[in-house]
């Protein structure tokens, strides 16, 4: 097997908040000791509840925020050690599509200016024809180049965001919930567009989502995160879950077929505060299989029978 495109090793990020007059600062680990490989051409999905650190992980991988510890290797280069000039050059080969298509485009820019920006910041020239071709590649008419973002629908804006991300022909694209703010019918179009572009341009995706159904449809492998840590890595999208949390995530999805309607067993208990995690497994308080061991020690992510899982009592 060849060298993976992305190699994440022991990546952690701590956030300190508060701390003022007569107030002690508090800190939380948004991402805790995450190690992952992303192979060339792969679509790796990351799922988890909001606040589990998946968006922070996405920004750490692109070094949009600095890690507290750990490193990210991109095609053999250690991104975390790069100086600003070298990092700017490295950004030509990686890009990001954002969740909110409404605030991800500067309201004062025309679409031509939005699409030219990647070239401008990298000091490259770009022709009007190239910009029109970029719009056409995401299924928008070139006549839109003079429009402003407020004249577009959410789905159209997200297409522009995708065109901007692909402007410099990157190898790796982080998709941070690219469909979460869109109508379901538009979601399908965007996913279809993304998978077509991946085939055509040989892209590698890191796909962040809270929608397990969507991730199982779109991704080759699935990483499940809970409170900043990876609890399970499903090697195939249809692999049977072994972590009780993954099981619960799958069970809480609604089946579209009414004849297969079943009772949904919601998880008991609340997510613990990330500022004061209990000792042991972070999921123990909500887990039906938890034992004293789970409340005392933190389970490591270990290769189980067929795929890695961080649980003392896997299913």
């Amino acid at each position: 097997m060849s060298e993976p495109l992305i190699r994440i090793q022991g990546l952690s990020r701590r956030f300190d908040t508060g701390g003022g007059f007569l107030k002690a600062p508090r800190s939380m680990m948004a991402v805790r000791d995450v190690s992952l490989d992303i192979a060339r051409g792969e679509v790796l999905g990351v799922v988890g509840e909001s606040g589990c650190g998946k968006s922070t992980l996405a920004r750490l991988v692109l070094r949009l925020i600095e890690p507290t510890s750990g490193r990210v290797r991109f095609d053999g280069t250690d991104l975390t050690a790069l100086k600003p000039a070298a990092l700017r050059a490295a950004r030509r080969r990686m890009a990001m599509v954002f969740q909110d298509p409404y605030s991800s485009l500067d309201p004062r820019y025309t679409l031509a200016e939005v699409l030219a920006e990647p070239f401008v910041v990298q000091g490259q020239a770009v022709t009007q024809d190239r910009l029109a071709a970029m719009l056409a590649a995401v299924g928008l008419p070139p006549a839109m180049l003079g429009s402003h973002p407020h004249q577009l629908s959410g789905g159209q804006r997200q297409r522009v965001g995708i065109a901007r991300a692909l402007a410099l022909s990157p190898a790796f694209v982080v998709l941070d919930e690219p469909t979460a703010s869109l109508d379901v019918s538009i979601q399908a179009q965007i996913i279809d567009l993304l998978s077509g572009l991946r085939d055509r341009m040989g892209l590698t995706y890191l796909f962040i989502s809270h929608d397990l159904g969507l991730v199982r449809y779109f991704c080759d492998r699935i990483v499940v995160m809970y409170l900043g840590a990876v609890v399970e890595v499903l090697d195939r999208a249809d692999a049977a879950p072994r972590h009780p949390y993954t099981r619960a995530l799958i069970d809480s999805g609604f089946a579209p077929d009414p004849s297969r309607r079943r009772a949904i067993a919601p998880l008991a208990g609340e997510i613990p505060s990330p500022f004061s995690l209990p000792p042991g497994c972070a999921f123990a308080g909500r887990c039906p299989r938890a034992s004293d061991l789970c409340r005392r020690d933190i389970p490591a992510l270990s290769a189980g029978e067929d795929h890695p899982v961080a649980c003392f009592h896997p299913l």
């Binding site: 692109l62 949009l64 990092l87 700017r88 050059a89 950004r91 030509r92 890009a95 990001m96 954002f98 969740q99 909110d100 605030s103 991800s104 485009l105 500067d106 309201p107 004062r108 920006e117 990647p118 401008v120 910041v121 990298q122 965001g161 901007r164 402007a167 410099l168």
Partner: peptide
């Protein structure tokens, strides 16, 4: 805090570009 600032950063934009092409005009 707007996403388009983060988007510009993800493309490799310098501080000067973000300040003079995005923040001040807006």
């Amino acid at each position: 805090g707007e996403t388009f600032i983060e988007a510009a950063r993800s493309l490799g934009a310098s501080d000067g570009h973000i300040l003079f092409r995005h923040l001040l005009p807006n």
